[in-house]
Design a protein around this nucleic acid. Structure first.
Lengths: 231, 231
DNA sequence: TAGATTGTTAATCGATTAACAATC
DNA sequence: TAGATTGTTAATCGATTAACAATC
């Protein structure tokens, strides 16, 4: 029912799966660059990622022309242009809310910097934590978020708080000017249509994996009724 | 090209998006149960999750009949049956590889237990870490994985190691009997077709979000244009 | 019974892939 | 030039949603 207004002005609406793959290509291209490979073809991309070559070319076609027929793609060019498309060619500041275990792991994750994401401020609502350090960040009071972000101008926020607090935090982030939220809490967030949310839920991922596990009739020691018929 | 043999025998092949949503329904149902709600209709599910009511009913239809026309679904029944479908109705042991920040956050995450996932063993290859404790787990030598898993019989493994080590770890997990892998490393894993992999890549998620950020012509000092037209 | 809501079929929509003319 | 590989159109596939008869 809800006819979502897409926030991008672009040429053509880019499918989300395409964007996800763009990030994959970017990573591969970094590796190739590091390996001093100068040129790739779409078929080589397919071999290395498992993503169909036509799919790759189609994905790129949403953004322009990138290759030379008969030759392929220059690795460094393509890398740079994709980085530009995803807007990670320059530093992107991020607000992190939640200074627990997960928050700590995120701040300490070196991969972020590699892709030019910078955690610019860390917030928590726990007075026992506020004022203490998380790595090289002082943990700030969540209530200072809006004020602090006037300086930073971050457009991306990460929610790493328990499910019960997530909705409230989302609203604070939006109020502070954030337009995109990465949500680690297992809750469905309600935000204005102009704000994009993506959820990272490893519980959900585990549940999906769990489904695929063959139900090996129990390492059944003795009789153990162990209802069998899976049907 | 690669015609993937699906490992499930089931009636009909269940779409992955359906499985992902099943996990969402499960979570919602837990909340409803806690709130002492006894019955839900598909329309109420739509209101609370944003997932189309027809979609919900279609999703369930892959697994059988769950509701009463004119009435709806009994929350507790539905919860239990979905848990059974996803095989999280009983404890599911997991092997965790990588005792770094991320691994630590995972072991310390209380949500896992709530969904009956149990991290049964933690491995690392760093001799400085092996033998030390991560929460209540002794960190074990990766090379003991196969041996240790003979006791545990875990079918699910989590990879929380740097990208460079991920492929090797994946192979060790498979060798140890794991059939499903949750991969946090930013690499594409190559595994036998009988093994399922799901990737959790928050860098990728951030990259996707980043794309959607309006490119506000730099916070260029004074006038603050504050670009409005979302169109 | 009348009203509500299911389960399922059919229609729609969108994403993936194959095929090929254009071009280096 | 001949061979390779692109960018794009058309064909296929699969997932989402609307519609409705069945049924509580």
């Amino acid at each position: 029912m809800a006819r979502r207004k897409r926030l991008e002005t672009n040429h053509q609406r880019v499918p989300v799966p395409t964007l996800e793959r763009m990030a994959t290509y970017l990573r591969l291209l970094s590796d190739l660059e590091a390996a001093k490979v100068h040129t790739v073809s779409s078929l080589e991309i397919e071999e290395q990622t498992g993503i169909n070559a036509a799919q790759f070319r189609k994905d790129l076609s949403y953004f322009g022309e990138f290759g030379k027929p008969g030759v392929g793609y220059r690795v460094s060019d393509l890398h740079q242009r994709i980085a530009q498309i995803l807007k990670i060619h320059r530093e992107q500041p991020i607000l992190l809310v939640g200074a627990g275990n997960l928050g700590s792991a995120l701040v300490g994750y070196p991969g972020l910097r590699e892709q030019r994401f910078v955690i610019a401020a860390v917030f928590d609502n726990n007075y026992a934590k506020i004022g203490r350090m998380l790595w090289d960040h002082e943990i700030l009071d969540v209530n200072r978020m809006k004020e602090v972000n006037r300086q930073i101008g971050a457009r991306i926020g990460i929610i790493a708080v328990p499910a019960g607090a997530a909705q409230e935090v989302a609203e604070m982030l939006v109020d502070a000017g954030v337009r995109a939220i990465l949500n680690f809490a297992p809750t469905i967030l309600r935000v204005p249509p102009s704000v994009v949310v993506r959820n990272v839920s490893f519980l959900q991922e585990l549940a999906v994996l769990s489904y695929y596990i063959e139900q090996e009739e129990e390492p059944l020691s003795s009789p153990t009724p162990a209802a069998s018929s899976t049907l």
